[in-house]
């Protein structure tokens, strides 16, 4: 471990900025390229990087596998939740125009609906990518 000071320090310095960049990609997705899919992958890349440099055990202390699995399911639930919410507000499934009161500007509802589903996509993609990496990296090689 001791001969990789640059890698370890570099990882620790870079990680918060990569996380910040992922959030930028997520919330700037309305104005430029980006969105939930890309931001989720970048978010997951931080934990992949951490696991590659510090080892899988320490990465699993930071980000337990169970949390990743839960994220994968939670994002889909969030997406469906936004869809059902707009349905219960009187519109069709996933018609965000009805998210707020009828006299409200419908584009307002669209805006928040898009933020909601993008967040769901982010959470799912993040959880799935981390879980996939853990599943592959956590398996021991069996030589025959």
């Amino acid at each position: 471990m001791d001969d990789r000071v640059i890698l370890r320090v570099g990882t620790k310095v870079l990680s918060p900025f990569i996380l910040l960049f992922a959030l930028y990609v997520q919330f700037h997705g309305d104005y430029g390229p980006g969105g939930g899919f890309q931001a989720g992958v970048i978010f997951a890349a931080v934990f992949v990087l951490y696991a590659l440099v510090f080892g899988l055990e320490r990465a699993m202390e930071v980000m337990p596998a169970k949390v990743a699995y839960a994220c994968g399911a939670l994002g889909v639930a969030l997406y469906l939740g936004v869809g059902y919410l707009s349905m219960f507000r009187g519109g069709e499934f996933l018609n965000y125009s009805y998210l707020f009161d009828p006299e409200h500007d419908p584009t307002h509802g669209q805006h928040y609906g898009i933020i909601g589903v993008e967040l769901g996509v982010l959470v799912t993609v993040f959880g799935v990518m981390v879980a996939l990496f853990y599943a592959f990296a956590g398996r021991r090689r069996i030589d025959t």
């Binding site: 969105g35 899919f37 992958v41 993609v125 799935v128 599943a135 592959f136 398996r139 069996i142």
Partner: peptide
């Protein structure tokens, strides 16, 4: 295509996990 890429990596992971099981 944006969504297809992400689904593509998910199916790739599924294929790779089958490869790992076949190897074992």
């Amino acid at each position: 295509m944006l969504t297809a890429i992400v689904v593509g990596v998910a199916t790739l992971a599924l294929g790779l996990s089958l490869v790992v099981r076949i190897k074992e």
